[in-house]
Amino acid sequence: MTRRVRRWVLAVGGAGLAALLVAACPALPPFGGATHPYGDRVVHESLARQTANTIASVNFDQRAFDTLGELGILFASVIGTVVLLRQTRDERRAAPEPAAVSLPVRRYALIVLPVALLTGLYVVAHGQLSPGGGFQGGVVAATALHLLYLGADYRALENVRPIGLYEVGDALAASGYLVTGFAGLLGGTAFLANTLLPYGTFNTLASGGTVPLLNAAIGMEVACAVVVLLARFLDQAVEIEKESGS
């Protein structure tokens, strides 16, 4: 198919799709309207279980089973990336060379690193109370480690980041989520049901039953997954090169 024909197909198909989507818009509930039946019920249930952050309550309590599926997607994509970006037979691994880093960059990166790491852990720990949670905090903590790559060099990053440990941590966090789910089953209720632990006092760290546990498992899983993913991409960019003469 030539580019010209393809553009015509796109124009016809796109115009049809645009017309259908625009025609569908007036049938949606009006923007900013007051009727949100699901939202009202979710807020009510979340407050009944002493979880201040309703979104954490949706993710780790009311829809905890869907989050298990999301965890599976994340886990599978990490495995897929590790398999796709492995070192092949015609490639070799070159030792990364130390590079000069200008002083302000080095100073700034090394000052911000502990602050960013602590912020990430704070966001994970307070997931059931304030905006944030395992997904967001995990990404912050994982990227904080990579400031070392900016501030020092790749070897320094590799020293604080034994990749095998993070792969194990990824798997442990995923199984921790499952085990918490099965604990609900053994406790006489249902898989991932939040009935096992006391709900605690509203707006304190230990409130929400199993929400903080599942949240912490997700935080660890996401942090490890991001570290492993970035390590594979950085390996491709920095270390792995084609063998000469092949």
Binding site: A34, H36, G39, A52, N53, T54, L129, P131, N203
Partner: peptide
């Protein structure tokens, strides 16, 4: 779809 006029974030901390 989820916006409500005058609404704030659904976080009660």
């Amino acid at each position: 779809v989820g916006y409500r006029d005058g609404g704030t974030a659904p976080v009660f901390s």
